[in-house]
Amino acid sequence: MLTFTIRRLLTLVPQLLVAALVVFVLTSLLPGDAAIARAGGESATPELIAQYRAQLGLDKPLVERFIDFVVHAATGDLGISFSTSEPVSDILLRKVPVTLSLVLLGFIFAILIALPLATIAALHPRGIADRISLAVATSGIAIPNFWFAILLVLLFSLTLRWLPATSYVPFSTDPLQWFLHLLLPAITLGHALAAELTRQLRASLGDHLRRDYVRTMRSAGLSEISVVGKHALRSALGPAVTTLGLQVPIAIGTCVVIEAVFDLPGIGSQMVQAVFSRDIQVLQGVILFTVLLVVVASFLTDLAYALINPKVRVQ
């Protein structure tokens, strides 16, 4: 297990380097550079722009700038925001907990929806639960998240007045309010993520329930709970874990829209703000951090998979 972990850990480095290159190239393509923005726009004197360009290291060749970018990023220095003059790393530190809270709760909801639904659906094909699972799997993909979120707000915040519609309360300030403020956003995200998970789990559990070992256990008189819960479900969970890992980028992408609807100060809304204000430095930082998150998530997924399925470790 240790060699597997180390070997898998080593593959993260080239992955992150390539991602950093893509982010760097993308953001280098942006019209107008940091120096012009810092000097006060296009009307600034060429001397002032040149001075800032030298100060920001923008007069160096591209390759050198890329190396600087990687070295700085690796030490946590992601530059300074053009629009607020705040270090990008500080902005991220402030906004990341919001998005992570949302993603975490979203995944919990997705599992809470998918696991029981898929299990009952697989046990009773063509039953009511099976039909509901199909509806969830389809609606989760076809309903626009922002619209679903607005409908939830319309029902639970504006009509029933049970839950707050906007803003965020940090966990450290008030855990209950943190949860209540994130409940509707997390349900929206969970609904979106549950679609693929339900479909996948339903198919894989159904497949396992038809296998010989399940028939043998049943004929040997093992209780249904033991057959399904201890054996079939455990085997079926392997691919589901992979599905969960693959959904991390989808979840973060979905956060952009959900944070906009619920007015949550996370990295998603920060990203939209950065696009509108063309804040390249923030954009770079947010994308780079997101890729780091995705890469780490795929690493953890592989580890979890190796724990569940020992065969993977020796490959």
């Binding site: 992955q15 390539v18 991602a19 893509v22 993308l26 953001t27 393509l29 942006l30 019209p31 980028p249 989808i250 973060i252 992408g253 979905t254 952009v256 829209v257 990203m271 939209v272 950065a274 696009v275 063309r278 390249i280 954009l283 947010v286 994308i287 997101t290 890729v291 995705v294 890469v295 795929s298």
Partner: peptide
């Protein structure tokens, strides 16, 4: 690598450009 970016993020980055 392109697939590892959230597609909406990638779209946002290109819209920014």
């Amino acid at each position: 690598v392109l697939l590892s970016f959230p597609s909406l993020f990638l779209a946002l980055a290109i819209v920014a450009i």
